[in-house]
Structure formats: C-alpha cells, structure tokens
Simulated scan of single mutants.
Amino acid sequence: MPKSLFWTRTDTAGSEHVVLDDREGLTAQGVALAVDPIPYTCRYRLTIARDWSTNRLEVEADGAGWARSVRLERGRDGWRVRTGEEGDLDAALRAAGHPPAGLPGTDDPERLAEALDVDLGGSPLTNTLPIRRIGLGRLPADLATSVTVAWVLLPGLTVVPSEQVYTSLGPGRVRFASGTFSAELQVDPDGFVVRYPGLAERADPR
C-alpha cells in the first residue's frame, strides 16, 4: 500500500504532504505550501530507480500573478532540463522586498553531471534519497559520505549543483551538512525524516 507522509514547517508557516510507494525504488507525488519568501504552492512528481538514483523530477510552483515549472530527467547522456514560466515572479518578489529569483532551470545541464540525487528546497522527503541510495543505515557511525545533488530552489525553481555530506550518527540519527550549514536529522527505520531541526517535523497519524 502507498504511504502518506505529512510535515509541518517549523521555519515558516507551511507544510508538505506526499503519497509514495517505496517498494521498488520510489514513486511519489507531493504538495508543499509556504509563505516565505512569498506565498506559494508547489506540486511535484518524483521517480527514483531501484538503486535509489533519480530518474525524474517534475515540479510546478505558483502564486499570485505567476507560475513556473521545471522537469529534470537523468539519462545515460546526462540531465535534461525543461522549464516553463507564466506571469512575473520577480516582480512579485520585488514588491515584497525580496531579491529576484532569476530564471527557472539551468542554462548548463552539464553542471549537474555528477548529481545522482535531487534536493527540492524545503522538502524533507528528498533527504531520504541519498540516505537510501548510499545505504547510510548500514555504514559505520561517523563515516561521512559526500554526494552531489541537483538542488531545486523554491519558489523560483532555479537548479544548481550542491555538494552535501551525510553522516550516520547511530540508529535513527543522521548529520546533514552543506557548506557551513549542518543539522542532525531524526529519521525512521526506512530513512524518512521525522524531525529536521529548524525546518520541519513530521505529523504521524495517532
């Protein structure tokens, strides 16, 4: 049976709900909402291979007066990136006192060549992808593993490569680090995030 996971954002007003099947790789459909930097709704569809490398991520984001989309597909010849845009997100951001987001997608997909995983900004679900792919739960504690991900920023859907480090800290605990940022994640036995300090907490059925 498919699983249903729900997170409440702790850094801003927002939430994420995803329905997924992880019996052979992962297929997932989710919706994320947040008010920062401006109110937006994000809908995504994610397809992960049996080895837990990413095959495809499709994302749509919209708000008042704008809508954007990006589709990432990874094949033998690298990543393919397709984008769409309606309205003016940058005007909405400037009106709210924020810098512009720039264009969706990337002008050079080859920059993503080393990425086997995707990271959707603000989504605890996508932390599970490298955790499962590298088998972090089976690795010795304190053994750090570096990964390259295709990081999709929200709400603008710009895609950039990002170097991240995952370290097992023992059962149910994972250290995530990127640049100068780090956080100790609490995960369930399947590697799905239960608590991401400063970002989100999962609301499990009672």
Rank of each mutant, 00 (worst) to 15 (best):
T126V: 10
T126N: 04
T126Y: 09
N127H: 15
N127I: 09
N127V: 05
T128C: 13
T128Q: 05
T128Y: 01
L129V: 11
L129Y: 05
P130A: 10
P130D: 15
P130G: 11
I131F: 03
I131T: 10
I131N: 08
I131A: 00
R132A: 06
R132E: 06
R132D: 14
R132F: 09
R132W: 05
R133L: 01
R133S: 10
I134K: 06
I134R: 02
I134P: 03
I134C: 10
G135Q: 11
G135L: 14
L136M: 13
G137Y: 05
G137Q: 10
G137E: 06
G137H: 15
R138P: 01
R138V: 10
R138Y: 07
R138K: 14
L139A: 14
P140D: 15
P140W: 04
P140S: 03
A141P: 00
A141E: 09
A141D: 09
D142P: 04
D142S: 06
L143C: 12
A144P: 00
A144R: 06
T145G: 04
S146H: 10
S146W: 01
V147A: 15
T148C: 06
V149N: 10
V149H: 01
W151Y: 03
W151D: 03
W151R: 01
V152K: 01
L153F: 00
L153S: 09
L153R: 10
L154F: 00
L154W: 00
P155T: 02
L157H: 00
L157T: 04
T158D: 08
T158L: 07
T158Y: 01
V159L: 01
V160G: 03
V160R: 04
P161A: 10
P161Q: 08
P161N: 12
P161H: 11
S162F: 07
S162W: 10
S162V: 06
S162K: 02
S162R: 01
S162L: 08
S162M: 12
E163S: 15
E163G: 11
E163Y: 02
Q164R: 13
Q164I: 14
Q164F: 07
V165W: 05
V165Q: 12
V165H: 05
V165A: 11
V165N: 07
Y166Q: 12
Y166C: 15
T167P: 13
T167E: 07
L169P: 09
L169H: 02
L169G: 12
L169W: 04
G170I: 15
G170N: 05
P171F: 05
P171H: 07
P171K: 02
P171M: 07
G172M: 02
G172N: 05
R173K: 15
R173Y: 07
R173F: 14
R173E: 13
V174N: 08
V174S: 08
V174Q: 03
V174D: 03
V174P: 05
V174G: 10
V174Y: 02
F176Y: 15
S178F: 01
S178Q: 11
G179A: 09
G179C: 06
T180E: 11
T180P: 01
T180M: 07
T180A: 13
T180L: 12
F181S: 13
F181I: 08
